[in-house]
Write a protein that binds this DNA or RNA. Structure first.
Length: 382
DNA sequence: ATTCCACTGGAATTATAGGATG
DNA sequence: CATCCTATAATTCCAGTGGAAT
């Protein structure tokens, strides 16, 4: 018997898992009707052959920013097609394309222009991009809406050069999506003035709203009557605590179901949800550590050593230990501060700066923010 | 108010990869 | 092919800052 056939016949609580993936775009987005309308109100200009205004979408992770943008994109393109208009909406995730060059090169490629990843100067690529608007193949003016997801990442790495060029290109509307409200501090005044920005804020989902979302998805993805009554409310409640993160709620629900399969249970019990929570957390930490550059892993190793000896960890002491750990192949004192900040961003540690007065300067007190055993496990497998 | 030191922002340097050019 | 360029990421170097003890 074929192994896949055998596995395929195993009992499962799922009908189809794909609806529990946060990337799946459902036919309707509960509790986001208002936000969809707001975006559409600006983008409708494109249907009148006018370039829409630039917009900004704010909200914490899992509040439906990307989903709303993609949903509205789909609807807009439908209308544009009916009206036979040359409207395009291109989605760019700034964690995949992290510099001005890469974003514009990617856009050119999406529009059927062959551009190399490297080698050309920035100016050549920009020229190539702007040419797209001159020779309009369809005889109609092209209107391009660019969805810049997680734009804060790009601004931090590469500055505001991308926004500068895009705002200076006709027929281009920018829709930036950001996790942080203060991402505009990276934008210089010269660009800010031309970014006549409309802002749309996404509030976190509350527990009840998360229940609605989960119920809709659960109906599609689970078999009938496999979920115990309290499973969905529990997932929703846990996710509501995590700042209303719908992605997390979906993850919990899916993992709970997988646990039920693993245990050959026909029913998903509430306990599985709690187990799923630990499971997800464990995976998150392991995943972060495994993908950490080796130098940062050495910093973590030193941190672990100091924590186990219950020493108070200052950045100076940390550097001493770090130099021990990475014999010969160490990096400068300055660089360690960046690492410390990055680790703090990832939520693995917490820091507070204190000043010890004349002659002693200031220092950082560092605390590990996760279970020692969890960290050791992850380090070992890394 | 001064002072001293560890922290911090940013410019400069180094290393690497890949295209253009002759 | 060798040579010259550009983009980009990682790191170092250096000139400030901040703030409690003096």
């Amino acid at each position: 018997m074929n192994i896949f056939e055998e596995l395929g016949e195993k009992n499962t609580v799922f009908k189809c898992k794909k609806f529990l993936d946060h990337r799946f775009l459902p036919d309707k987005l509960p509790h986001r009707e208002e936000q969809i309308r707001s975006v559409a109100k600006y983008w409708i200009e494109a249907l009148n052959s006018v370039t829409p205004p630039d917009i900004t979408i704010y909200g914490k992770t899992g509040t439906g920013k990307t989903a709303v943008a993609k949903f509205t994109k789909k609807q807009l393109l439908q209308m544009a097609k009916d009206k036979n208009l040359n409207v395009r909406v291109e989605y760019v995730r700034c964690t995949d394309y992290t510099t001005e060059y890469q974003v514009i090169a990617h856009l050119c490629q999406q529009m059927g222009q062959n551009v190399p990843y490297r080698g050309w100067t920035k100016a050549e690529v920009i020229q190539s991009f702007r040419n797209l608007f001159k020779k309009n193949v369809f005889g109609k003016d092209l209107i391009l809406i660019i969805l810049l997801d997680e734009i804060d990442i790009l601004l931090k790495n590469d500055g505001d050069g991308l926004l500068y060029t895009l705002t200076r290109t006709e027929n281009v509307a920018i829709a930036s999506i950001s996790n942080y409200v203060d991402f505009k501090k990276f934008i210089k005044p010269r660009v800010k003035s031309s970014l006549r920005d409309r802002e749309i804020v996404f509030p976190p989902y509350n527990a009840q709203q998360l229940v609605d979302i989960l119920e809709e998805r659960a109906a599609l993805s689970f078999r009938d009557n496999v979920l115990n009554d309290d499973v969905i409310p529990l997932c929703a409640a846990l996710a509501a605590k995590e700042e209303g993160d719908a992605r997390y709620a979906l993850d919990l629900l899916r993992t709970s179901g997988e646990l039920a399969d693993e245990k050959c249970s026909d029913i998903v019990f509430e306990d599985y949800v709690r187990e799923a929570k630990d499971h997800i957390e464990h995976n998150k930490v392991t995943d972060i550590i495994m993908t950490l550059p080796s130098q940062q892993q050495k910093v973590l190793e030193s941190l672990l050593y100091l924590t186990k000896r219950k020493e108070e960890i200052t950045s100076g002491r940390l550097y001493e230990v770090y130099k021990e750990v990475s014999k010969g192949d160490s990096v400068s004192y300055r660089r360690i501060f960046d690492f410390i900040n990055e680790l703090e961003m990832l939520g693995l540690i917490s820091t507070k700066t204190i000043s010890r007065g004349r002659g002693r300067g200031r220092t950082n007190i560092i605390d590990l923010q996760c279970e020692i055993s969890l960290l050791e496990d992850a380090m070992w497998s890394a």
